[in-house]
Simulated scan of single mutants.
Amino acid sequence: MHSTIVSTALLARHLEDPRWLVIDVRHELSDPAFGRRAFAAGHIPGAQFLHIDDDLSAPTTGRNGRHPLPGREAFAARMGELGLTPQTQVVVYDAQGGMTAVRLWWMLRWIGHAGVAVLDGGLPAWLAAGLPVEAGAAKPRAASPVLIQPSLVGAVSAADLLANLAGGPLQVVDARSPDRFRGENETLDPVGGHIPGALNRFFRDNLGPDGHFKPADQLRAEFETLLDDTPVESVVAQCGSGITACHNLLALEIAGLPGARLYPGSWSEWCADPAHPVATGA
C-alpha cells in the first residue's frame, strides 16, 4: 500500500478499482461552505467528500483550539460509512498543495490505517494532466465497520509542552507562515506569537514551484539543517489548529525521517490559556 504520496497517473490507473477510496477535503477557512460547493461543481470521479469542520473535527469550546480532534471511535464510524476496510487504499486530495488533505492522512494513521496517501499536486495537477472530473453528489459506497487498530502516529498535549519548557527534549516545529510565527499579521487567533523555543518551517516550503512535494533527498537535507542534531523522535509538529502541521509530518515521512509527533491543539489552543507563555520575533 502507498503511505505518503501518489501521482495523478497512478491514481488514474486505479479509478475503477473498488479497493481504492478517493476523498476530497477541499476547504477554505474564510468560507466553510466552499468545499461542498467545489465538490458538487466538479471532483475526481468516484470521490467522496469529508468536511474539515463537520467530519474531521470535534466541537470547539473556546479552549480546545479551532479544529480539535474528534473521538477515534466517531471518526472510525464516519470512515466506515465510506466503506473503509483494512485492504482499502485511500487517496486524499485538495486544491492547495495538500494543505488540508494532510489532516485526513494523519487521522487515518491515528486509527491505525496505513494505506493512505496524499495526491501529489492535488486537483490542480489532476486537471493539468487532462484527467476527467464529474459533477454532482458523491456516489454511495457500501458501508463497512472499522476496527480501530493501534495508532501509527504520536501526539502530545499542551501540558506536555508546558512541562518541556523547563528544559525537556521536545523540539516544536511551527508550520505557520513566518510573519504569524513572529507574531505579526495574526488574523485567525486572538494572540500573536509562538510557543517559546519553537522553530519555524512554513509548510509551503515543502513544495516546489509546481505545487508538488520536493524530492525526498531535498526535503531530508532541509529538515536536517533545520533540526541540527535534534532526533526526529523529539520533534513535535504544530501550526494554527493542527492541520498544516501534518504537512510537515508528511514531508518528514517522504524524507525518510519518521517518528515526529503532532500537537493537535496547536497555537489556537495554546494561546487560549493566558497561563501559557508566548514568544514573539524570529
Rank of each mutant, 00 (worst) to 15 (best):
D55Y: 13
P274C: 07
H14V: 03
E81Y: 07
A38D: 15
D273C: 12
R78Y: 14
Q87G: 09
E73N: 10
V118E: 01
V25I: 11
P277R: 11
A101R: 01
G211T: 05
Y93N: 11
N164F: 06
I23H: 07
S157W: 14
A129E: 10
V116H: 02
P190I: 08
V6R: 10
D229L: 06
R26W: 01
G97V: 02
M79K: 08
P59G: 14
P209M: 01
G122R: 00
Y263S: 09
A198D: 05
F49N: 03
R180A: 05
I111T: 09
S268V: 12
A135D: 06
A117F: 07
L147C: 06
C239E: 04
E16W: 06
D55P: 02
A221R: 15
V92F: 14
S7T: 15
S30F: 05
P258V: 03
V235P: 06
Y93P: 05
A216Q: 06
T85N: 08
S57T: 10
L188V: 15
D189I: 03
A76P: 04
Q171H: 06
A138C: 06
I148R: 07
G97S: 07
V116G: 01
S234C: 14
T8S: 13
A101L: 04
E81L: 13
A117D: 02
G259Q: 08
D53V: 12
P190T: 07
T60E: 12
T230Y: 09
P231L: 02
L227G: 00
L165V: 05
F39P: 01
L56F: 10
P277Q: 05
H113V: 02
W126L: 05
P86I: 15
L29M: 14
G122E: 00
T60S: 12
L82W: 10
L127E: 14
L262Y: 03
V191P: 06
P32Q: 06
G35K: 00
A12I: 08
F75Y: 13
C271K: 04
